[in-house]
């Protein structure tokens, strides 16, 4: 099976096209997935920033009730998995989930280790390091963002409550968004790409196979059939025109057989002629 010209022509083409289309689709999917996650992270950071800005007034006036209400209301929004504010020491001061309030955050967990990995915590954190992805206890894929709440002159100088000027970061706002809609979009995109890839493969490999079959394998098979029989038949006429080089080959073969037959006949005639001549001479 692997020795036939049809197989030897189609396998490399099919393998190369299938492989390359698969590589391109997998890479393209990965790039698009990364872009969509980056976009979701950017919009998440914007939400976190909005929350920090909207709580700024309540924080400056140390209005804890107002602050708690803001956190609870925003946390109820669809797609928000968690929303918490913790202070400089890592104690959760406000949370959408009230049972978390007062709990201590482990500084070695992901999300905290970005700043707390060194001896001295980093005051500034790159945007991509503020983002993390994980599965929460309910099995929901979460995209979480940590937004530092920086110290401002108005924070350290207000009379109501006092923060030291040396503390650059007063606390953190941590918001987690459900990635379900994003995962659904990615799954839809994946199925569409698989269908698109299969269609391209069928068209490319099928098209190449059909063209090769029509213009090469069928005439070649006919040529093989014709050359396999010892007697010239009407079948050879089928290849006289319309198949390009294969027709030319069939014509050459035909003329070769005709010339060979003529030569054989001439030789036979010559033999019989010589025999008659010898018989006449003998008599």
């Amino acid at each position: 099976m692997f020795q036939s010209i049809a197989t030897r022509s189609i396998i490399p083409v099919g393998l190369a096209v299938t492989g390359f289309v698969a590589i391109c689709c997998l890479s393209l999917y990965s790039i698009m997935k990364q872009d969509m996650i980056d976009e979701a992270a950017q919009s998440g950071r914007n939400i976190a920033n909005t929350v920090v800005l909207s709580t700024r007034y309540a924080m400056l006036h140390n209005d804890r009730q107002h602050l708690g209400n803001i956190i609870a209301n925003i946390g109820q929004q669809q797609g928000v998995e968690h929303l918490r504010v913790f202070n400089h020491e890592g104690l959760i001061s406000f949370s959408r989930n009230t049972s978390e309030t007062g709990q201590q955050i482990n500084k070695n967990t992901e999300g905290c280790s970005g700043c707390h990995s060194g001896l001295k915590p980093a005051a500034l954190l790159a945007a991509e390091k503020q983002t993390r992805r994980f599965k929460n206890e309910r099995g929901v894929e979460v995209l979480a963002m940590s937004q530092p709440i920086y110290n401002e002159p108005s924070c350290s100088t207000t009379a109501c409550h006092y923060h030291s000027q040396n503390n650059r970061v007063l606390g953190m706002l941590d918001i987690g968004l459900d990635q379900g809609p994003l995962q659904n979009s990615l799954a839809l995109m994946r199925y569409r790409m698989i269908i698109f890839t299969l269609m391209i493969l069928v068209l490319t490999v099928g098209g190449v196979a059909a063209l090769l079959n029509r213009s090469f394998f069928i005439p070649l098979k006919k040529l093989v059939d014709i050359t396999s029989v010892s007697v010239l038949s009407d079948a050879e006429k089928e290849l006289e025109s319309g198949f390009g080089e294969v027709s030319l080959l069939a014509q050459n073969y035909h003329s070769l057989v005709v010339r060979l037959n003529d030569a054989k006949e001439a030789l036979a005639r010559c033999h019989s002629c010589n025999k008659t001549k010898a018989d006449t001479e003998n008599t």
């Binding site: 692997f2 490399p12 393998l15 190369a16 492989g19 698969a22 590589i23 997998l26 990364q34």
Partner: peptide, 26 residues
């Protein structure tokens, strides 16, 4: 980003090596 791109590298390797192997085999 290895987990996202693992299959792309695997498909690349398999395509190139299968093609080369097929060529050498024939």
């Amino acid at each position: 980003v290895l987990s996202e791109n693992f299959w792309a590298v695997l498909a690349t390797g398999m395509t190139i090596l299968c093609l080369e192997s097929y060529h050498i085999w024939t």
